[in-house]
């Protein structure tokens, strides 16, 4: 078996008396899309925050391609190839679309202790940012302020920025949330197109999207992984059906 790109072992996070993450084990194999589903409040976003180092877990270890991340701050984890998108979009609203992307490229290129050259005339940044935007719905909107973007465009930009960091593993926190049908379909296509370039951990409520994209699915309920397996295994799993999917056919 190849070395997993992400390997989480025994992760625990407590908020006071509440167990938000309850001994979670999770692996993502290179090239796969691993979906993480679960009801609201199951602790999915909390888990992503711990993987990124934004929250400190109480117990457990996280490894990226065999390298332990536990002692590293967020910035260094990103440097090693971890990137995330935010469920509630978190962008730089006073900057344009291309500024946002170029800034991610700039940070990836190395330190920013450069005080003289005009950053907006810097072709090494602008050209790469343009390339990243090419072919996305954002291409014609490159010089629009982020504050003026629609929700769907902001979601798209979240993804583009994450890709600008050239990640090995992408943590996607509900990329379809709040999107209309057409936009969701576009997002699914975009993610499918990325599948060979980057591994993904996909947190999503939209089951159509999950079943369309995922290679494997894990189900998180009350901070615990109650099941993990292929799409079909999860569909058939009786425990999952009662705990989360609910009996009946309204799902598929």
């Amino acid at each position: 078996m190849t070395q997993p790109i992400l390997n989480v072992r025994g992760l625990v996070k407590r908020f006071g008396g509440l167990l938000a993450t309850d001994h979670v084990d999770l692996t993502v194999q290179p090239g796969e899309i691993h979906a993480l589903i679960g009801p609201n409040g199951a602790g999915k976003t909390t888990l992503i925050s711990q993987l990124m180092g934004e929250l400190k877990p109480n117990e457990g270890t996280v490894e990226l391609a065999g390298q332990s991340l536990d002692a590293l701050p967020t910035a260094q984890r990103v440097g090693l190839g971890l990137a995330r998108t935010f469920q509630i979009t978190c962008l730089l609203p006073d900057y344009t679309v291309i500024d946002n992307v170029a800034l991610a490229v700039q940070v990836r290129q190395g330190h920013s202790f450069r005080f003289w050259k005009n950053v907006r005339a810097d072709h090494s940044l602008r050209d790469e940012a343009s390339t990243l935007l090419t072919g996305t719905g954002l291409e014609p909107r490159a010089n629009e302020l982020v504050a003026n973007l629609s929700h769907g465009e902001q979601k798209q930009l979240e993804l583009t920025i994450a890709l600008a960091t050239q990640p090995r593993l992408l943590l996607l926190d509900e990329p379809m949330a709040g999107l209309g049908h057409v936009e969701s379909q576009q997002m699914i296509e975009t993610l499918r197109g990325l599948k060979n370039q980057v591994s993904m951990l996909l947190v999503e409520h939209d089951m159509d999207a999950v079943f369309a994209l995922a290679d494997r699915i894990s189900v998180l309920v009350y901070g615990r992984v109650i099941a993990s397996g292929s799409v079909d295994e999860i569909r058939q799993n009786p425990e999952v059906r009662t705990a989360y999917l609910g009996e009946g056919d309204e799902l598929c």
């Binding site: 978190c90 609203p93 500024d99 700039q106």
Partner: peptide, 25 residues
């Protein structure tokens, strides 16, 4: 208007975003 100024203004707008693209603030 330099690269340095760019990250500084970025930090003002969202520290969380800057961390997520790998910037040590």
């Amino acid at each position: 208007n330099s690269r340095f100024g760019n990250v500084l203004v970025g930090l003002r707008q969202s520290e969380k975003r800057m961390a997520a693209i790998g910037l040590p603030a």
